[in-house]
Design a protein around this nucleic acid. Structure first.
Lengths: 253, 253
DNA sequence: AGTCAAGAGATGTATGTACAAGTTACCGGC
DNA sequence: GCCGGTAACTTGTACATACATCTCTTGACT
């Protein structure tokens, strides 16, 4: 075959099947064509067809089977890594204009806590970045980010008011690969309150983020404090173990 | 074969491989034996071995491949659905003793908001359950749960002080299949403050949960308010799109 | 008309074969 | 000694086949 693209057959089949589900060509809740029919239609053997179906199954777009043909199911897509990591990208996906005003960018020595989290010795140089993040010009989040020096020094060649640090780091081929977000709630401190323009003591949604490279080397330790009125996090999971995550603008439904 | 269990071959292989990774028998970061070696060891063909490896690969326990043998990688396991849904199960996994004192269980008419979320008409009967959840006897979370009547009526035959509502519902074959958790922060109201023994206005971590059946029919709408000192949520994600979630006891690291 | 069993058809599982494509190590030529 | 090509090995992809197991329908029997 190799008509359109040069991808392996089962990947092209998977993409085609997914297109049919999302376009409604294979209606949600109704059984999809049988494997033999698909084999006949694409002139292939059962193997690639089954690989493609397995892919969709693990993504949750197909359920059922065993005796009867599986049924299609449209699923809410998980937000991609970049969207979840970058405030700028996230803001755009929810149709808002991101903004930022840098409070501070400084090279200093790692505090005890930070050193532990970043796997450094206390006193090693790190780069701290504090920015107030805006949505459509309104304060939404206060970001305190600490980078290991090797990564952070890039920031001195970069104007953090001009856009996405995340994209700049990617462009410089920093291997941001894995992130762990820990979510809790804190009361706004005096500094938080002043910058976010709320009263001291008001509840904030805090996300501490540890970003690491592919090998697990810590690169960034961040403390983001959101106004609860501006953003929420969602987790969707099922008994089968599929999980999708998202960050959304807060709004009453 | 069928020596030990009656599971399909590739599932037994997958379980065995996973055991070897987690036990360190296949050290992290080092290549695992080649497919042919595994075939020889287990006296099977390449198919089941590859299925098992694919399973581990999609779970993130194996990386690499194509030409060189894949590399083992221990991953933090995602908490299973039940652990994430049930306070009782969760408490046990972190080595604490769960407890609860029921504040109220009542059959009443759905408010406008609740009706929307549960997909009911305003005024339809629902069952509301309010419980204070404890960890080792200390207040940790205030749970306000609203069930559709068909599910909630089960609760009248059940003592909610005696343990896990979730397990009871499963036992009665209620099809709890899918849950969406929305996380934000709120200030403790007077009632929250009194029950959780904090000051009014203190920050609480709020998780609103909509639990649905396999077909997507809403069954439960809940509002859980955690003391931030007692629990945090974590999200781990990678560029490849794998996501694992967890709820943990708060502790300084 | 109702019930149960057989059978057709579907997916799940497993084997064997073949070739393509990538990685590594070795070995000879310069 | 360095470089480059080749050979061996590994995984990725694809096909053909066979049988197990489950579902649903059909049809015969009661």
């Amino acid at each position: 075959m190799k008509t359109s693209e040069d991808l392996p057959l089962h990947q092209r089949l998977g993409a085609e099947f997914l297109r049919r589900i999302e376009s409604g060509e294979w209606p949600e809740g109704k059984p999809v064509p049988s494997e033999s029919q698909l084999c006949a239609e694409f002139g292939t053997s059962r193997g690639p067809v089954r690989q493609a179906l397995a892919m969709l199954r693990s993504a949750g777009s197909l359920v059922g089977g065993r005796g009867k043909p599986p049924v299609a199911r449209r699923t809410t897509p998980s937000q991609p890594f970049g969207t979840f990591l970058s405030f700028t990208q996230w803001a755009r996906t929810i149709g808002r204009e991101p903004g930022q005003s840098t409070v501070e960018v400084a090279r200093r020595r790692a505090s005890a806590e930070t050193a532990v989290r970043l796997g450094l010795a206390e006193g090693e140089p790190v780069v701290e970045l504090v920015r107030l993040r805006l949505l459509d010009g309104v304060p939404a989040m206060l970001e305190r980010s600490t980078f290991v020096h090797e990564v952070g020094r890039i920031l001195f060649d970069f104007d953090p008011d001009s856009g996405s640090v995340y994209q700049e780091l990617l462009r410089r081929e920093v291997d941001l690969h894995h992130a762990r977000h820990t979510i809790d709630a804190v009361a706004a401190g005096p500094r938080d309150a002043e910058l976010l323009r709320v009263a001291a003591g008001d509840p904030l949604l805090r996300v501490r983020r540890l970003t690491t490279s592919r090998q697990g080397v810590p690169l960034e330790d961040a403390d983001d404090r959101y106004l609860p009125a501006m953003a929420t996090f969602t987790i969707e999971n099922t008994v089968e173990g599929r999980t999708v995550i998202g960050r959304y603008r807060t709004e009453e439904d």
